[in-house]
Nucleic acid binder design. Structure first.
Lengths: 251, 251
DNA sequence: CGACGGTTTGAGTCCGGTCAATTGTCGTGG
DNA sequence: CCACGACAATTGACCGGACTCAAACCGTCG
């Protein structure tokens, strides 16, 4: 059984908790799109959506399925990926709290999504959004902002995949992770590598073996400290030099 | 002098033709965003913008410059690219009539743009759009639609760059070109390869030599016919099989 | 015609992939 | 508590596809 078939066969199960007016999940963690929803909801009337907690390794949506809902993350890590017919996989992105996924102008999802860790999601009906768009002027702007940022990140990734060496890719990846996860203060600390080597490899266009080897080299040269599933950038300057890029990567 | 420095040094020159009410350029070629602008303009009041004709090989905008305007293409081909500090280049996309570029939620452009052929552009002041967004409810939706499509294309490209072989990349590229350019009817005809081998290589994450070699092989096996700067897909089925991908590539 | 830039073709090299074996980690059950 | 199994991660040996370097070819334009 191919990887593609195996993944496609996995069922999608949502333990849905309905919230008619507002959403405890959003309320507890006002980030990104959810924050916008909350602000808009308070000002006018609430955008009905549901909250759900899902364990790790679950399929959240499948490429090609009807794009009926879109999601925001309030807790945990999600990976987006696409498959080739022979099972080769490309992870197009790792998403964290505040990020949005499943939004599509087409009628089908253009990628699959799976939880990397246990996650908390908010689930919005797409059709409803279409209908009440006029009443929520801030929401579409917010979505546009998030999608634009996603596009900028995708373009950075295209540079990485098209022109960077294995070492540069791994260095870029770790720096991006640090920048993404150390927003709430503790800069320079340990960051959680919640995804497997295979996920990282599929994200960087490499193999698990190469990722592992590069980690070993970076560890040996003192650039990073690696313990279990945690990493710390020891020599930020060296890593940034390695990651290269005239654009500075911080969009 | 590095490639990066050379490109950065090239001046940006715009022969601007002002249109206070409406734009002949848009009016003549109602596609994509320009069409939306026109529709909105007729219904309410006109979105002031300027039209410009630019010869090929000109820098349209530079990564890092203040994102004061965004553009739509009414005629010709534009390439977007990013540079690494040592001059390595990644072309993130080729754009055609109806496409939008230079739109950014950040205050700086995240990529550079250059005309591949002589082009006709419409130039919109970003600040003005911010101000009158409420009066043009359809415009932001239109931009969101275009940006979303761009994102989907970028994700396809990430699969290509991360997981496809040189042959698969070239086949995918040619098929995408055909699908993009043969919209106005003449399917299966000749398509213009307006960009150089170097541009294609930078787009596909390969070298010019490899692109050339693959072209030769595809020509030899009867999959394509190559004459000067024109190509024709002779064996669509074989090419689609080569291009691979469970997603079918048509988003 | 000759100069120039882009393209094609060839020969050799190397980075990262492939295949395979080993080690490490964690959860389970005896 | 430890033995065991399953799976992830690491390490090693080898290979090959794409890159590099180099030369020849070609179309365009002065």
């Amino acid at each position: 059984m191919s990887l593609a078939a195996a993944i496609a066969a996995r069922p999608v199960a949502f333990p849905v908790i309905a919230h008619a007016n507002g959403c405890n999940n959003c309320a507890a963690r006002p980030q990104g799109f959810c924050a916008a929803v909350k602000a808009e909801s308070l000002a006018r009337f609430s955008l009905a959506h549901t909250s759900q907690d899902i364990e790790s390794g679950k399929t959240l949506l499948n490429e090609g399925d009807p794009a009926t809902h879109f999601f925001t993350i309030t807790e945990g890590t999600v990976k987006l990926f696409k498959l080739l017919s022979d099972g080769r996989r490309a992870v197009t992105g790792f998403l964290f709290p505040g990020d949005l996924f499943g939004f599509s102008v087409e009628d089908k999802y253009s990628y699959s999504a799976e939880s990397v860790t246990p996650v908390s999601l908010c689930r919005f009906p797409r059709r409803q959004l279409d209908r009440i768009n006029a009443d929520f002027p801030g929401l579409e702007s917010q979505i546009l902002k998030l999608v634009s940022r996603e596009l900028a990140a995708a373009q950075d990734q295209m540079v990485l995949l098209g022109r960077k060496t294995a070492h540069e890719r791994v260095a870029s990846f770790l720096l991006a992770l640090v920048r993404r996860q150390s927003r709430p203060g503790r800069y320079g600390g340990w960051i959680e590598l919640s995804m497997t080597r295979t996920d990282i490899a599929d994200y960087l266009g490499l193999t698990t073996e190469t990722v592992s080897r590069v980690f070993t080299v970076l560890k040996g040269s003192g650039c990073i400290v690696l313990a279990c599933s945690k990493v710390r950038i020891a020599d930020t300057e060296a890593m940034e030099e390695l990651a290269d890029g005239i654009s500075g990567d911080d969009e």
